[in-house]
Amino acid sequence: MITLFGIPGAASLAPRICLEEAGADYVFVEPDRTPGHAGPPEFVAASPLLQVPGYVDRDVRLSEAAAIVMHIADRFPDSGLAPPVGSDERGDWYRWLVYLTTTPMPVLYQWLYPERFTTGPGTEERVRAYAVSRLDRMFDWIDGELSDRDHLVGGRFTAADAFLWMLCRWTRNMPRPAFSRPNLERFWVQGRARPSIAAVIVKERLG
């Protein structure tokens, strides 16, 4: 049995969408992260920094959302969550997942939690403003990439799309949400209609 440690709507969202997409048998557990509580030992083993998501499946213990979705894709090869190993599409899939986790995702954290990224009291709003300007350009670029297709890689829904959909959701309170752009709006609406994403929206009461 697979255990996914997460918080509704947080970085566990993309791994959970992938588990639903694969038809996996799993349980979703919200770890107790209040100070002084280390949380379940399985969660600590999976994620020593106590960050969600954590993932446990027999002898596999993982943290890092991008790593977990790559692993789920390998664990369920019939899911179509990843292109075949060694193909050009697989290389392109790595490109997208690495880009999403290294470039927009950390800057989204700067927008959501600016106090973590500065030591200067009173500079938080400037950190946020700088993050917004960078994110606007990133999502403009991604929107252009989707102008001729519905999915990032390989002509079908993959773990990279699950990851992008999660990041789009995190922008919903920004001045210009990612899905206010035409192609990303199409991507966002089509995503909501997928059974896997629709199921997670209900289970996590994401509205």
Partner: peptide, 14 residues
């Protein structure tokens, strides 16, 4: 392989 993904993701994004 899973652990390899974890380290590459952590080193790259953190």
């Amino acid at each position: 392989r899973a652990e390899y993904y974890r380290w590459l993701a952590y080193l790259a994004n953190t």
